[in-house]
């Protein structure tokens, strides 16, 4: 299981990187953390003619704290963000703990996971739940791609072959907002069979600005928009939560695979959504950590 031959470039400057991507198009693969790409190379399931290793690029390794969001450079490792988030962004820390194992997170990048767009992965779901975005650069300039436009299908994003994610933008939770992040996997560290990320605030004893993303139950992470509309303005009762989750589950189009049936995913998506919302509401009330 050795990779097929490829040409290798390790550019340091952005222009050089973008030039390589523009020149080689579909023939090139970007190597960041490599935790998804290198297995595919070893299996010879990916056979790029050119590997563009961006790990030597400068300026992409920062976590920048801004007022309303944090900006995560393209080379920030999942492990580093996890440690950082343990202080001020517990939802993020919680989600990252589910990503593979320590030795995977040491190398794996936040941006790389988003670009890989596995619908059962945690970070894409988190981006959707937080209404985050990525900054994509190409020789033509840069653009901000919002989560809902980024994920197109299974392992497919709306990024063009000549675009490189340089930054991930994760909006902070509003003060007083509660959150819940849960998933069911076959084993610890596996991709989720199903997962749910939820954020809510409470205003005058009613649910405000609810946001829910479900993952592992569609071709992309699924934002439960209609269920959010059902919840908004409701008192945070179990009945309201269950009704919303039932609606969200009904709208899913999950697929069956080796590890779970579509029916399982639909049912457990509902269960996890109820539980994640329950956690979020509890935390919003100040009951939780």
């Amino acid at each position: 299981m050795k990779p097929a031959p490829f040409a290798y470039h390790a550019p340091r400057a952005l222009d050089e990187t973008l030039g390589l991507l523009a020149r080689h198009g579909d023939e090139a693969k970007i190597l960041a953390g490599g935790q998804s790409l290198v297995p595919l190379l070893n299996f010879r399931l990916a056979r790029p003619a050119v590997v563009v290793d961006i790990n030597r690029m400068s300026g992409l390794g920062e976590i920048r704290e801004e007022d309303r969001q944090i900006a995560v450079g393209a080379l920030v490792r999942q492990r580093r963000l996890e440690v950082w988030a343990q202080q001020g962004f517990p939802l993020l820390a919680d989600a990252l703990r589910y990503v593979g194992h320590h030795a995977i997170r040491t190398r794996g990048t936040v941006a790389g996971s988003l670009a890989h767009a596995d619908p059962a992965a945690e970070l894409p779901a988190l981006l959707v739940c937080l209404e985050g975005s990525v900054v994509a650069r190409s020789p033509a300039g840069h653009r901000e791609v919002r989560a809902r436009e980024l994920f197109v299908s299974h392992l497919t994003t709306s990024l063009r072959p000549d675009e490189l994610i340089t930054e991930v933008r994760l909006p902070r939770l509003h003060t007083g907002a509660g959150w819940g992040f849960l998933e069911v996997a076959r084993r610890h560290g596996d991709f989720a069979l199903v997962g749910a990320a939820a954020v809510v605030s409470l205003a005058d004893g009613r649910i405000a600005e609810p946001r829910v993303a479900l993952f592992g139950c569609g071709a992309t992470p699924v934002r439960a928009s209609r269920a959010e509309a059902i919840l908004a303005g409701q008192p945070p009762t179990p009945e309201a939560v269950v009704a919303a989750a039932r609606d969200a589950a009904g709208a899913l189009a999950p697929e069956s695979d080796l590890h779970a049936t579509a029916e399982y995913r639909r049912r457990v998506a509902q269960t996890l959504m109820v539980r994640a919302l329950g956690l979020a509401i509890g935390r919003a009330r100040g009951n939780g950590p």
């Binding site: 076959r186 590890h259 779970a260 029916e263 399982y264 049912r267």
Partner: peptide
């Protein structure tokens, strides 16, 4: 006894 198998039985 995977979660999916078991949940189908329980269901």
């Amino acid at each position: 006894v995977s979660p999916a198998r078991l949940l189908a039985l329980i269901g």
